Amino acid sequence: MTRVLLIEDDPAVRRGVTLGQQRRGHRTEAVATGEDGLEALTASPPDIVLLDLMLPGMSGLEVCRRIREISQVPIVILSARSDDVDVVVGLEAGADDYIVKPASDEVIEARMRAVMRRLAPTQPDPPDGGRTVHGDLEIDRAALRVRKHGKNLTLAPSELKLLLFLSAWPDRTFSRQELLEQVWEHSFYGDARLVDACVMRLRAGTEDDPRNPRYIQTVRGFGYRFGPL
């Protein structure tokens, strides 16, 4: 049974999403404010958070940032805002996916399942029992752990999955569409923003100078590749 924390101030949306989740066998706790959401997350950690951006008091973006300070639980934003700026800002705050409301129960369920899949896509068995070293970056696939200069890095699930996938194919360039299908397991119009925002967050966590990345390199006009310089 998946434990879902829904943070949504609209009573009608809150009821509708909760009923949809319950019909699929999920245990859902629904709260109306960001403050109550943070309290609920601390008291009983969920498997995934569904988060509205337009909340009274503490905004959804601030809630997202605060969750990321204490937890790597998957976060899916539910918002009526669909502008590119809103989507990118939400993703940069630490969310793993972004769904524009109104959305059907089927769409929410599919996107939740995609975000929660932790196993990396099919890829060749890496050497050294799943542990590879690239300069000052150490990737341990078996432990799902990344270290830099010997210190553990805290990465969101989507960031970790993207790094695991790209580093399994060093020097191979993947388009944004290919990364959407392999890492996020869906291909909705406009979702290239997911890839770009996740790359920005990943660089911020793994690079000494994110503006001049050493590991996650941009191939202009096409996509990204992992190629330690």
Rank of each mutant, 00 (worst) to 15 (best):
L229C: 03
L163Y: 07
A43S: 07
E62W: 04
A114E: 09
A30R: 07
V17I: 03
R211E: 13
R201L: 08
I216F: 13
R81A: 10
G25R: 00
G34S: 10
V88W: 01
E69K: 14
E207I: 09
L38C: 12
E109Q: 14
T206F: 01
V146G: 01
V63G: 11
G190R: 06
V199E: 05
P56M: 13
G57S: 11
H134D: 06
I7H: 00
A120T: 00
T173C: 01
D47K: 03
F165Y: 15
S44C: 15
N152R: 06
T218P: 04
I67Q: 05
V219M: 09
K101Y: 02
E178M: 03
V4P: 11
L55H: 13
Y215S: 09
D140H: 14
T18P: 04
D52N: 05
L78M: 13
L78K: 01
H26R: 10
P213C: 01
K151L: 13
A32W: 12
T132F: 02
I77C: 00
Q182G: 03
A197H: 15
R23W: 03
L6E: 04
T33W: 12
I99F: 04
L153Y: 09
F188H: 12
Q22V: 00
D191T: 07
S158Y: 00
G37R: 02
V115C: 10
S44D: 15
A95Y: 13
A204R: 03
P213N: 02
K151H: 11
P126T: 15
E92N: 13
G129S: 10
V146S: 14
K101R: 13
T28R: 08
S59W: 06
S44F: 15
D10A: 11
D209Y: 09
D96C: 15
E178I: 02
V88H: 00
G129H: 15
T173F: 07
L180G: 04
A40N: 06
P127F: 03
V85Q: 14
T18E: 10
E207P: 11
K161F: 04
L19F: 04
L144T: 05
G221P: 01
D84G: 07
G135V: 11
L164I: 05
I75V: 15
R147P: 00
S79M: 10
V73A: 04
G34K: 00
E62Q: 08
L5P: 04
R15F: 08
